[in-house]
Design a binder for these strands. Structure first.
Lengths: 237, 237
DNA sequence: GAGTGGTCTAGACCACTCA
DNA sequence: GAGTGGTCTAGACCACTCC
């Protein structure tokens, strides 16, 4: 059952994306939207808040809700999208190569990141992502084995997230990320097509489940020429 | 006049930061918080939503609001902070060098980004940011001259944002950013301490005012070893 | 002053977790 | 079944913009 305010959000968002409202236009007032959707004002406001959070509109007290220009920057499929989803969206020929898959005790750094004990077990998966026949991304995942008891090469070649969500019923809820640049190391040079490159863009993520348990620590190493990140930041008044 | 829900948010956030609630603890239930703060449930929920958005808690239906570990990644002073604020927070010795300050007609790229006509005028400011006596960041700003009629070297050496907010009464509201990596160019080599480096991290931003007008386009070029970005992403259910 | 969004309330019902 | 958060409502008052 999808909530009413979410349906309203989707409907208005689609109208904006289809160009029914142009950038700079104001949306109908909240009371008009109440009538149109047969909803209370707070429900309309929840829908509009989603539009604000996703950078589709901007609200001004006393004036109205202004439609923003979606194309000014191509947009946030921010945050939690998996490699498979992204590469499919870009319509590129992509492939995942599994180099290493095993169960081991976490070292000090990993056990600290995942909040696990030295005698616990984690899955370590090392994968290369190939796009248009170039090895671009090196993913090193560390996954809490209590949450994902079994893991096969086939699953890792397809999508671990898909497996966790569809087969295990684990819901990924939020992630913290950190982005910075390092010098290439031997592992990068062994697994990626980085001749002539010096640096690598590192994205470290901590992935949490719906119940706020820490499930996974990932270090994703991107060849700098193919890395791109978009962000949308609002200031709180 | 600060809203009630915002005050409640601040109060709970401080209690979390001071350690009154430990990571993993659950906050008092919404109805208990209603009593404590003499507020309705929707008001409490607005405050809790701010905590969720800032990564301080995570809510689980049927269970409660769980306090997250703030220190797992050091935290988002995400998005809209100015160089001056950041360098002050880090307690570093910093300096800004203005190389270029002038009024000119936008070229095709800038006029497209800022939505201006070729005959309009923009301020172009080129500045180097020096931290601990190393030239680390090259900032190239393009500012709509209709919004900021006058600009001096002194203002640019201090903080343009401060000038716009305090002197001109312009309110910065939100920004869209794009991050990627480029090869060093001659300008980088001329203005930054980048001997031995090959790449530069580019952060392009479009900065919008309170009334959704586009005020500024900035290209901020960071020496890769000093660049760091943190992000917190939630998934919508 | 009319119209807009921002805040706050009291109450209702639902979905979920856990014992 | 008791307790939790999630949704929705109808109505009130306030702050702001624009004429």
């Amino acid at each position: 059952m999808v909530s009413k305010f979410y349906q309203i959000y989707i409907e208005i968002a689609e109208e904006i994306q289809k160009g029914h409202f142009q950038p700079g236009d104001t949306l109908p007032s909240e009371s008009e939207l109440c009538e149109r959707f047969a909803a209370s004002r707070e429900t309309i406001r929840k829908a509009l808040n989603l539009l604000v959070q996703n950078g589709l509109i901007h609200k001004i007290q006393g004036k109205g809700s202004i439609v923003l220009d979606i194309n000014k920057f191509n947009f946030p499929f921010g945050g939690l999208v998996s490699f498979k989803e992204v590469s499919q969206k870009m319509g590129r020929k992509s492939r995942t190569i599994v180099h290493d898959l095993g169960l081991l005790h976490p070292n000090a750094y990993i056990s600290k990141q995942l909040g696990m004990k030295p005698k616990d077990y984690v899955w370590k998966v090392t994968r290369t992502r190939e796009i248009n026949e170039e090895k671009i991304i090196l993913d090193k995942d560390y996954i809490n084995s209590k949450l994902v008891p079994a893991l096969t090469k086939e699953i890792c070649e397809n999508s671990i997230y898909e497996y966790m969500e569809n087969e295990l019923g684990l819901k990924i809820s939020f992630a913290k990320k950190e982005i910075y640049v390092e010098d290439l190391n031997d592992e990068d040079r062994a697994f990626l097509d980085v001749e002539g490159f010096v640096n690598i863009v590192v994205v470290k993520s901590l992935v949490y489940l719906d119940d706020a348990t820490l499930m996974q620590y990932t270090e994703s190493r991107h060849r700098p020429d193919k890395f791109r990140f978009t962000d949308f930041a609002r200031r709180h008044n």
